[in-house]
Design a protein around this nucleic acid. Structure first.
Lengths: 141, 141
DNA sequence: TTTAATGCAAAGAATTTGCAAGCAA
DNA sequence: TTGCTTGCAAATTCTTTGCATTAAA
């Protein structure tokens, strides 16, 4: 059900983009897959002995090459996920938990946007905000 | 066609939320309406003699009270618009121009998200990225 | 060997905080 | 008058940059 890649596939992914294969790059990508939608800080916590600079450098490069997608959040921090995932995010306003769901049809909205505004549209992001089940129960007590 | 408010309506809006009426608050809200989707910096440029702190404080308060919506951008800066506007944004990846368009039907997506994830959904934001007409022409030359 | 990747330290940019002075109610 | 609002200065936080060291190809 999930689109996880093993490390051989990650190596291929890097090679396709002309990037050198380093343990750090593999680890960063593995963390992005394993963690859901980590921030740079969260990646750093799970992968000790790696400089923040390296994480920033690589994540930035991955984003510019469209290997990784950047999800800007309202507190100014960004979260990251693999670019090949094709889903939307529901974010808990109370605890921050992010749950994914798939909804493939919004190309219609891109088309409409393109027609109405004459932009040449490439992509879109959507964040849906609410309260997760746990926080609903906590609040009910 | 636009949902502009005159300053009497802005005063009412502040009173409804129990906020004191100050010239600065009126000016900040007027700028948010007039500018489209300003950053804090852009508000400061148009309203000299107001401290950045005041703009940050008020905008933050407006957001927490849902008077103003925050649109997080990938460079880490946020842009702001009145919360009552009900539209989506197409953002030019080349020059940053934002064009609004109305598309009222996405409550369906909120409903679906709610059903699939059991979140209690409150709102969503969507950003559509592409190239504006001007930049398309510039690139064609 | 050649060039890219790493990481420390320092710089930069956006935002927040502490606190004193000013103004709305 | 009372307490919210304002704003300066300083502190914080997140991110980027310069440059010397290390490692991939």
């Amino acid at each position: 059900m999930n689109g996880n890649l093993d490390s051989e596939e990650l190596i291929l992914l890097l090679k396709e983009h002309g990037l050198r294969i380093t343990p750090h790059r593999i680890q960063i990508l593995e963390m992005i897959i394993a963690e859901g939608h980590p921030t740079v800080e969260e990646i750093a916590k799970r992968v000790p002995n790696m400089s923040l600079t390296t994480i920033y450098n690589n994540v930035k490069q991955f984003v510019s090459m469209n290997i990784v997608k950047e999800l800007p959040f309202e507190n100014g921090m960004s979260r990251y996920e693999l670019a090949k995932t094709n889903n939307y995010h529901v974010i808990c306003q109370s605890c921050g938990l992010i749950v994914d769901f798939t909804f493939p049809n919004l190309i219609e909205v891109e088309d409409l946007a393109s027609r109405l505004t004459k932009y040449k549209v490439h992509r879109h992001i959507m964040g849906i905000y609410g309260i997760c089940t746990d926080c609903q129960h906590t609040a009910a007590r």
